[in-house]
Design a protein around this nucleic acid. Structure first.
Length: 422
RNA sequence: GGAGAGGUCGCAUAGUCCGGCCGAGUGCGCACGAUUGGAAAUCGUGUAGGCGCAAGCCUCGCGGGUUCAAAUCCCGCCCUCUCCGCCA
C-alpha cells in the first residue's frame, strides 16, 4: 500500500505512475473520501474531547442539579457523536478498501513502456547446447520415457494437473533439496517450512487480495486460503511485528507447493507442465533496511542466477518495464531459461523489490538502533527457482540422441550418483 | 469435537467481582544521569503504537452493545493453555 499522505500531496505523480503502469486505481475517489473523512474526524474528535472533559468532571461535581445538567448535555453530545460516527464509518471503510487497490509506485530506475515488448534484456548467460538431432519438447520426452503422466493427472484432478513419475519425480525432489542447500550454505539464508494454508489477512499483506481473489483457491468454511507462493506465509511471518534493527537483514528460503487457479491465464500454455494449478517452488524472501534494498535486490537476483549457472543452463535476465510490472513490485527482474525443445524462454524466477509496499500492508517495522520511531522494513522476494519450468529446461536441454536425458553434474550427489533419466 | 482457564504498555504481572482518582501500578529488561580509579550494588529520570502543525483523538485479543463515563458490565468472534475424545 502506498501512503495516503503521499497520494494527497502528490496526486499528479501518482496519476502519472498509473499511466506508466497501464493500470487504473481510484485516486479521485480516495482524495474525495480523504477530504470527507478529515472533515468528519475533526468534528467528531472535538466532540469526543468535550465529552471526555465533562465526563471527568461529573464525579467531582457535588451539586446534583449541575450534575444532572452535565449528564443531559453529554447525552446529547453522545448522540451527535454516534451520528457522525455512522457517517464516518462507511467513508473510512471504503477509503481503506480503495487504498488496497492502488498498486506500488515504480522505482525511478524502471524503464517506461506499455507492455513486455519494452522489457529490457539485461544480460544473457551461457549458450544453448548444440544438438545434432531435432530436440523434442518435454511433453513428448515425458510421455515417451514414462516420466510425466498427463492422462492420469487429468483423470485424478482435471486439466492442468499431471504426475511426475520415477526419475522425474526423483529429479524434482533432488533439485528442491539441492537448491535449498545452495541458498543456505552459499548465500546465507535460513530455511523455513511454512504453512500452505493461510488466513485471509496474509493475502492482503502480500497483496494477492483484494485484486486477485479469482486466482486463489480457498476453503470457505474455515476461511483458509491455499498459498499461491511461499512468499505469502514467509513474508507474513513478521506481520504486526517491530523488529530490532540489528535483526536486519533477514533472509529466508522456503520450499512449498503453490496453488493457482489460473483464471486470468485460462487457455494459455495448456500443453506440457509449464502452467499448472499446483507446482513446487523454492522461494527466497528478504526483510531489509530501507537504505539497502536495491543492493539486496541485486544480490537476490544473483542468488537465483547462481542456480542456473551451477546447473549449466543458458538463461537471460530481463528487467520489467512499467507496463509489465506486477501490482506490488517497485522493481522486478525475471530470469528466463532457454528450452531447446519448445524453443522458448521460460520464466523460472521473478525477483522483486517491494520497498515498503508490503511492509505497510502487513505492518512489518523495525526500531532504529538509535531508538527512534519504528520504520517500515523493505521486503523482497525471488524464486530460487520454480520447479516445473526448471524441469522443462533440464529435460529438453539435457536430452541426448540415444533418447536418454542427462542429470546435471551438480544434482548427481542428490540423486545417489544417478547420471541419466529414466 | 467436549470441559475448564486465560489473552493488559519488550518480558512477567497488578487492576476486572464493587465502572470514574487507570492509557494503565509494580518487578525485570533497556537508555541516560549520579555515585566509583573502573565496575558491581545503589539512587534518580525515562522507556507501547497510530492519526494530527497543534490542542487533542484512538488503541488493555478483535468486533458490537449498555452508560455522561468501560481494561472493568453485556453479546458475538478469534487465539493460547490444561484435561478428555479422535487422529497422520
Amino acid at each position: 500500500m502506498i501512503e495516503l499522505g503521499y497520494i494527497r500531496e502528490h496526486p499528479d505523480e501518482v496519476r502519472q505512475a498509473l499511466v506508466n503502469l497501464h493500470t487504473e486505481a481510484p485516486i479521485d475517489e480516495i482524495l474525495a473520501l480523504d477530504e470527507r473523512r478529515r472533515a468528519l474526524l475533526a468534528e467528531v474528535e472535538a466532540l469526543r474531547a468535550e465529552r471526555n472533559r465533562v465526563s471527568k468532571e461529573v464525579p467531582r461535581t457535588k451539586d446534583p442539579h449541575q450534575k444532572r445538567e452535565m449528564i443531559e448535555a453529554m447525552r446529547a453530545v453522545g448522540e451527535r457523536i454516534s451520528e457522525l460516527e455512522d457517517e464516518l464509518a462507511p467513508v473510512q471503510a471504503r477509503l481503506d478498501e480503495a487504498l488496497l487497490e492502488v498498486p506500488n509506485m515504480p522505482h525511478p530506475s524502471v524503464p517506461v513502456g506499455p507492455d513486455e515488448s519494452h522489457n529490457v534484456v539485461v544480460r544473457t548467460v551461457g549458450d544453448p547446447p548444440t544438438m545434432a538431432f531435432q530436440p523434442k519438447p518435454h511433453w513428448e520426452l515425458g510421455e515417451e520415457l514414462g516420466l510425466i503422466d498427463f492422462y492420469r493427472g487429468v483423470k485424478i484432478s482435471g486439466s492442468r494437473f499431471y504426475l511426475l513419475r520415477g526419475g522425474a519425480a526423483r529429479l524434482q525432489r533432488a533439485l528442491i533439496a539441492w537448491m535449498i542447500d545452495v541458498h543456505v550454505r552459499e548465500h546465507g539464508y535460513e530455511e523455513v517450512y511454512p504453512p500452505y494454508l493461510v488466513r485471509r489477512e496474509c493475502l492482503y499483506g502480500t497483496a494477492q487480495l483484494p485484486k486477485f481473489a479469482e486466482n486463489q483457491y480457498f476453503d470457505s468454511e474455515d476461511d483458509l486460503w491455499l498459498i499461491p507462493t511461499a512468499e505469502v506465509p514467509v513474508t507474513n511471518m513478521y506481520r504486526e511485528e517491530i523488529l530490532a534493527e540489528e535483526q536486519l537483514p533477514i533472509y529466508h528460503v522456503a520450499y512449498s507447493a503453490c496453488f493457482r487457479r489460473e483464471k486470468m491465464s485460462a487457455g494459455r500454455d495448456t500443453r506440457g507442465i509449464k502452467r499448472g494449478h499446483q507446482f513446487d517452488k523454492v522461494e527466497m524472501v528478504k526483510f531489509v533496511h530501507p537504505d539497502t534494498s536495491m543492493d539486496e535486490l541485486m544480490r537476490l537476483l544473483d542468488n537465483a542466477e547462481d542456480i542456473c549457472r551451477q546447473l549449466e543452463l543458458p538463461y537471460r535476465v530481463v528487467q520489467m518495464c512499467t507496463g509489465d510490472l506486477s501490482f506490488s513490485a517497485a522493481v522486478k527482474y525475471d530470469i528466463e531459461l532457454w528450452a531447446m525443445g519448445c524453443q522458448e524462454w521460460l520464466e523460472v524466477s521473478s525477483c522483486s523489490n517491494f520497498m515498503d509496499f508490503q511492509a505497510r500492508r502487513a505492518n512489518i517495522r523495525f526500531r532504529p538502533a538509535d531508538g527512534g520511531k519504528p520504520q517500515y522494513v523493505h521486503t523482497l522476494n525471488g524464486s530460487g527457482l520454480a520447479l516445473p519450468r526448471l524441469m522443462i529446461a533440464i529435460l529438453e536441454n539435457y536430452q541426448r540422441d540415444d533418447g536418454t536425458i542427462g542429470v546435471p553434474e551438480a544434482i548427481r550427489p542428490y540423486m545417489g550418483g544417478q547420471t541419466e533419466l529414466p
